[in-house]
């Protein structure tokens, strides 16, 4: 099974360890992983700012890079959702459609495609789960507090396979952290306030780490935690699922 690793631009630049963990994890689970070198970004920063009409070049580059693999896997719910909902390229619509159907966020790929039921990872820490909105409400990685439907969570199912981990949820179990892409600078005051409130709930739970499927939310919360000189750290789910502490 050939998997094209789609690494979000800010992960490539700022959080290489997340991409390394994702790659190692997928390889451990038997996937042939390639990283198309000419990839840049999914185009979401432009589109969420209202400029999808100028993201044609970016979209074309994405299709050129990811045609010819069985699956595209990404350690980000938000970027995955963007590709799924909005990847269109004039003249290459068949390829774009194929990618839209075969793109997966990491945790849903592990559960739905690889159907894994155990992991060798161990992570003996108290971990707070952050439910990222695009993964949750967009990709349906887990049930949502607003809906009257059966409860489930793909990221939590995976984290529960990790030895030694203690999971912990905030009271407002799936409230947004306030990152929101360019929202974080254009609506700086609200964004920062939302982030502070989110972080506070995890602080109250005395967690060692906050984890989630989206490094962007975690980057935002990390910025706030560091400013507050907190002991709480952030860690991407891929890093926990690939972790070996003894």
């Amino acid at each position: 099974m050939k998997v094209g690793l789609f690494v979000p631009c800010y992960v490539d630049q700022f959080y290489p360890n997340v991409a390394i963990a994702t790659m190692q994890l997928l390889e451990k689970l038997g996937c042939e992983v390639v990283f198309p070198l000419e990839q840049t970004c999914c185009g979401q920063p432009m589109a969420n700012s209202g400029f999808s009409h100028i993201s044609e070049g970016c979209n074309k580059n994405f299709v050129d890079n990811f045609s010819g693999v069985d699956y595209v896997v990404c350690p980000s719910g938000s970027c995955t959702l963007h590709i799924k909902d909005h990847l269109h390229v004039e003249g290459k619509e068949a390829e774009a459609e194929k990618i839209r159907k075969q793109v997966y966020e990491l945790s849903e790929f592990l559960i739905d495609v690889l159907k894994i039921d155990h992991l060798t990872a161990s992570f003996p820490f108290k971990v707070g789960i952050h439910s990222s909105c695009h993964g949750q409400r967009g990709l349906h990685l887990s049930s949502m507090s607003e809906r009257v439907l059966p409860a489930f969570s793909k990221p939590e199912t995976l984290l529960n396979m990790v030895k030694g981990i203690t999971l912990c949820k905030p009271q407002r179990v799936d409230e947004c952290c306030g990152f929101g892409g360019t929202f974080c600078v254009f609506e700086e005051a609200v964004s920062a306030k939302m982030g502070k409130d989110r972080v506070q709930e995890h602080e109250d739970n005395h967690v060692d780490y906050i984890t989630g499927v989206d490094m962007s939310c975690l980057m935002h919360m990390e910025g706030i935690l560091k400013r507050q000189h907190s002991k709480v750290k952030v860690i991407h789910i891929a890093e926990i699922l690939n972790a070996h502490f003894n």
């Binding site: 991409a19 990283f35 070198l37 910025g223």
Partner: peptide, 25 residues
């Protein structure tokens, strides 16, 4: 930088993932 008003910037690593991949893979 509006980000910096209430948040620290992420620490820039020496190597991007791409550079790591080219070196190791």
């Amino acid at each position: 930088n509006p980000w910096y008003k209430n948040r620290e910037m992420p620490a820039p690593p020496k190597q991007s993932f791409r550079e790591w991949y080219q070196q190791n893979k």
